[in-house]
Design a protein around this nucleic acid. Structure first.
Lengths: 252, 252
DNA sequence: CGGTGTCTTGAATACCATCAAGTCTTGTGG
DNA sequence: CCACAAGACTTGATGGTATTCAAGACACCG
């Protein structure tokens, strides 16, 4: 078996359960599950090798250009793909939630042009690229799943372009929060978008995702709280006034 | 044969040559060429049906949600994929040059979430989605080409996110121009990036691509000209000071 | 207990948007 | 072919959103 576990830091990985993929709530429609399904029929000879990893919050899951022959899939925790600029500023391309492939393009191209950072402690698995690709041609459903995941990535990227190009700070921040809530709900990680939810993002993550400054993000969030739209405390977030909050996000 | 030609406007399509795909200079490595190659071996029974279309400048090639079973590929001319916002403002997601698929995701998902506009007069072909997809499984090279094109799209989108999130107006505009020059050079449509090139974009295209206002784009371009970096006149552009211009684009 | 990371708040500044007016070109119908 | 309208671009003045600069509060950790 290839399921070795590498502990990036021996400390603080306790909260992450070593659950099997079958128990993974996020997998229902994902590539990850499809890959598992593919490898389970012939239970003894696993076709697609997978290996599990755990990485502590704030650590890097993989650097630019540094990806061997392997595609990471998030099993548990939040991560972000980040572009670093030479002056130290950063841009987050996307947040990765459980069930997300780091990037579907990795199945075809060797190196990502960004790095992937753990936000919380993260458990992830890697699929062998070469093996997964070979499996495409035997199993059309796999290609279907992958292209669907890639399409969703593409749509999210396009929406981010519109947000950054044409929306105000208020709108960008509100939309970021709402989109995360939607994604969590789709995965069954919250019951409804309007209920209290885990929100492990630091303000600097919002800063890097929205192209704003720490100062301004702080001011906008404070204003959101003051006007009773949302509440953030202790790494969890509640949308108090869904209608009002959506109005802030949607104007035009 | 399915190669019917629809004239969107009978006027002003004369300059577009009805060249065969074999003569298309942009196709060397693209999906389009791969599709042609696929359909040519069995010359009599063309596997992937293609149909040619011509659309005049400023016309819409396809609207959101409006795509039947067909994927357009640009053969000649420039186009743009555009998201419209309800207040009338627009965001250009990408410029499409000869050889570009409108979006690789269209081979998997039915409807684009944006519309495609012709910038110049455009000649394009459409591939039947269902047929093309079936061909994947018989011809691995096709999937290879498509994934490569999609990867490039993804990288360009990610770079645009960084530009919009973290760069100034000067940088955005300079980078847009440089990237277009690079792409034209790769296709052999110009000999070097520093030589005079066709530049059919109106300022409002730059506006919509960079997330700025018409007034500001005008001022930046005027300043670029005044300081001898570039020259734009009569729908063509010359980079007069490549080193200086790159410095404007690259800072940080 | 000092150091680091996170967040907040206020003041000054800069970048880009908005408003407005005008030139020049392009296109169109009489 | 000319007159007029619409589109494309420029330029100056003014204003607002977000940045930069600065200082401090607070929590967490070694």
């Amino acid at each position: 078996m290839n399921a070795r576990v590498r502990l990036a830091t021996a400390v603080s990985v306790a909260p992450l359960a070593q659950a099997t993929c079958a128990a993974c709530s996020a997998n229902e429609h994902g590539v990850c599950q499809a890959a598992s399904a593919w490898s389970q029929p012939t239970d003894t000879s696993v076709e697609i090798q997978q290996s599990a990893h755990i990485v502590a919050a704030r650590r890097i899951i993989c650097r630019e250009q540094e990806l061997h022959d392997v595609v990471p899939i998030i099993c548990e925790g939040w991560a972000a793909s980040v572009v670093m600029l030479s002056d130290g500023s950063r841009q987050i391309l996307s947040f990765l939630l459980p069930g997300d492939i780091v990037s579907a393009a990795l199945f075809f191209d060797v190196r990502p042009h960004y790095l992937v950072e753990a936000i919380t402690d993260v458990r992830y698995r890697t699929l062998k690229r070469s093996e997964f690709r070979a499996a495409f041609f035997k199993n059309p459903g796999l290609l279907e799943k992958l292209s669907k995941a890639w399409t969703e990535e593409t749509i999210r990227a396009d929406q981010l372009i519109v947000d950054l190009g044409r929306r105000t700070a208020d709108e960008r921040i509100a939309r970021l929060i709402l989109k995360l809530a939607e994604r969590l709900e789709k995965r069954g990680m919250i019951e409804s978008e309007t209920v209290e939810m885990d929100f492990p993002l630091r303000q600097h993550h919002i800063v890097d995702a929205t192209g704003l400054t720490p100062v301004h993000v702080s001011k906008v969030l404070t204003e959101f709280r003051r006007s009773g739209l949302i509440n953030i405390s202790d790494r969890s977030l509640t949308i108090l006034d869904p209608v009002g909050f959506r109005r802030v996000a949607q104007t035009r």
